[in-house]
Amino acid sequence: MHLGLYTAPLHDRPLADVLPIVAEAGLDAVELNTGGFLPAAHIPVEALDGDPAAAREWLRVFEGTGVSLQGLNCNGNPLHPDPRTGERHAEDLRRSIRVAGALGQTRVVCMSGLPGAEPGAGQPTWVVNAWSSRALDVLEHQWEVAVPFWTEIDALAAEHGVTVALELHPQNLVFNPPSFLELLERTGARRLGVELDASHLFWQQMDPVHVVRRLGRHVAHAAVKDVRINPEAAWCGVLDNSFRRLSPDEPRTQIGAEEFVNEWPSASAWDFVALGRGHDAGYWAEFLTALAEVDPEMAVHIEHEDTSLGAVEGVQEAAAVLMEAARVAGLR
């Protein structure tokens, strides 16, 4: 099993400086961003696209580091109805698949995307609870948009020897196991799998260990990020919209055309936290054991999004818990 880091929290420094941090934390792999919501800060995707010779040369950056490349990440919304976002994210994903093939990589992580509610819509619409017949109409339209795209992506992935691993992420058409299986049923896809990020399952009240064992072979990749449910959840529940819009003169992350990440609620119902701050090493040992039962060579990467910790500090804290979990599980 490969235990590593999705390097997005360290985009402020070059990859050559990131790899020693990863190795010193006891980790042996990295997953690199190749487009979508975030820029490809650690890999020259345009230069590598379609050029296996350039890809082989670039891979030398890993020689002697004790760290290997284990997957590319292109999280975005390739089904966004605004073409300035949707078409760009879709092309980023296609390019990521081609680059993965050139690099000899077999996994590209992404999100399923989310269309608008109807033809001509300008913004995505997430149906959270389809209790009305109109909501089912919206979902059917969204599937009509999604199926041709993901059928195309499945064929492209097969051409390049890649499995596309969909993160079960809210605000996407595919956000839980049933919606993933529905995508497979509607498309007949053979190169689509799941990137099992436990954090998004936690706050939706799913059990990641149960999900891994029930999805089985469909789990192709994994991420470890923890969640802490706060007392405020007793008041507002986990579906909380008390985010604050950041102004143009504040630091903010752009994720699409005229779209930016909002400030997290100050009294949040739940938070992303470093590994061990929501679930102890014993729990993560169960998670790793379940993943190893599916694939002993599974890549499992830390995603650091605990805003109370600095980037390097957060990676180190999470890595210590992950390595202890691997030891308890008998994987190290």
Rank of each mutant, 00 (worst) to 15 (best):
V209I: 10
V224E: 05
G120W: 13
P248S: 03
N33M: 13
L103E: 14
E152D: 09
D137S: 09
A329D: 01
V164D: 00
N176I: 00
V211S: 12
M111Y: 06
T187Q: 00
W126M: 11
A47K: 11
V45M: 11
A55F: 11
S179Q: 07
P177E: 03
E159V: 00
P248V: 04
S308G: 02
T163I: 04
P81L: 01
V138Y: 06
N172P: 01
N75G: 10
E297N: 08
A29D: 10
R244C: 00
E293W: 02
E87H: 13
V321T: 10
A55W: 13
R98E: 05
L196M: 13
E195Y: 10
I43T: 12
T65H: 00
P124N: 09
R94T: 01
A234Q: 13
P170E: 07
L48N: 12
V219Q: 15
E263C: 06
L201P: 09
N241L: 11
E258F: 08
D207L: 06
P148N: 00
V194C: 04
F149N: 09
L181F: 07
R190W: 01
V164F: 00
E63A: 15
V321P: 03
H301W: 03
W131V: 15
V211R: 11
I229K: 07
F37H: 15
A257N: 09
Q171M: 10
H200K: 08
D280S: 03
V328T: 09
Q205L: 12
A8V: 12
E31W: 08
L103C: 14
R277C: 05
E286G: 08
P170N: 05
E63Q: 14
G188P: 05
L181S: 06
N77L: 07
G36S: 09
R134E: 15
V145A: 11
L239T: 12
E297A: 09
P170I: 07
W143P: 07
G122M: 09
A130H: 15
D295I: 03
Q123E: 15
R327H: 08
R228A: 11
C236E: 10
F175M: 06
